[in-house]
Design a protein around this nucleic acid. Sequence first.
DNA 1: GTCTATATTTGGATAGAC
DNA 2: GTCTATCCAAATATAGAC
Lengths: 187, 187
Amino acid sequence: MDRRAARHARTRREIVEAAWELSGRDGLTGWTLRDVASALGMQAPSLYGYFSSKHDLYDAMFSEGCRDLLAVLPEIDSSREAQDQLRAGMRAFVDYCSERPALFQLLFQHSVPGFTPSPESYAVAVDLLDRMRTALAAAGVTSARAVDLWTAVITGLISQQISNDLGGSRWTDLTDEAVALLLTASV
Amino acid sequence: MDRRAARHARTRREIVEAAWELSGRDGLTGWTLRDVASALGMQAPSLYGYFSSKHDLYDAMFSEGCRDLLAVLPEIDSSREAQDQLRAGMRAFVDYCSERPALFQLLFQHSVPGFTPSPESYAVAVDLLDRMRTALAAAGVTSARAVDLWTAVITGLISQQISNDLGGSRWTDLTDEAVALLLTASV
DNA sequence: GTCTATATTTGGATAGAC
DNA sequence: GTCTATCCAAATATAGAC
């Protein structure tokens, strides 16, 4: 990758980062391309050198967001107790998503009208789900129905936290209890 | 109420109904006032004789939606087993919300940017929550934490159903299992 | 690669006639 | 009470100069 390509890639990342920052403050759909550009000291049309449309920018946010989330989740360590690791992973997931409502909404609630992730971005989301499934399987949760119930409960906690107690911990504090309950049912 | 007022009220209801229908087809924010008007054979400015703004129309949709949902939930019948009634109520709730994603999003996910229900509409929502709480209390679920966990699990099922299997029953089919699990934990 | 200027569309809301 | 005509603002996207 030559200097020009490296610079281009860096600017792209800065644009995505600025879009996430605006999403955190004004909501996932609460900003315009002008806003993003001006946050970087640019003009809106300049963004089209990096993204072909606003949806294309959302697509980059989607894949980047998946990667961020993957990075936050603890690695599976085969030397430690699987249930403890699962609990820790779920807490990390719930806490991170609750602090970044826009991320949760883009990745898990499809809340940008008309936006669907590209195959490439979707592949990163699949990686994320695989990580979840692996952690669950290590703790003995393998049936499809059980996995679905887990995802519903965990995303339910996050969703309630975001919708009804933004910035607080009324629902995130219930994570350990929910995990314990689900573990008694699954094994 | 004289004839004029009755006619006015009826037209208001028709507008709200048309808006819900459009929301079901094109999403909660996927229609314009022109769309609503044309669905009724009217012109957009005529709507302002009934609603002072689009948010005002959303507000009417909010309170009307709460009432619809209340009407769908079974009454508490003190002669029957509380847990059975709770299970039936939760199934009714999950099924109805899953069939009407826009209703769920407006009432429980605050997903119209900038919209907050008026005090009058919010009061109807409180009635709805009270009904839930009463049904839970009758089945022995009284602590605030337990109620929060119930709402998270139930709305989590609906949310996953809507986001990942619209029109199907992959998560709604888990309702009875979730209720049973929550009951073992609460009592 | 970034700018200015602008095309184009859209959609909420108002004015005023009938 | 409903209409036509219109305003106004916003926002994506493009054209073309530098």
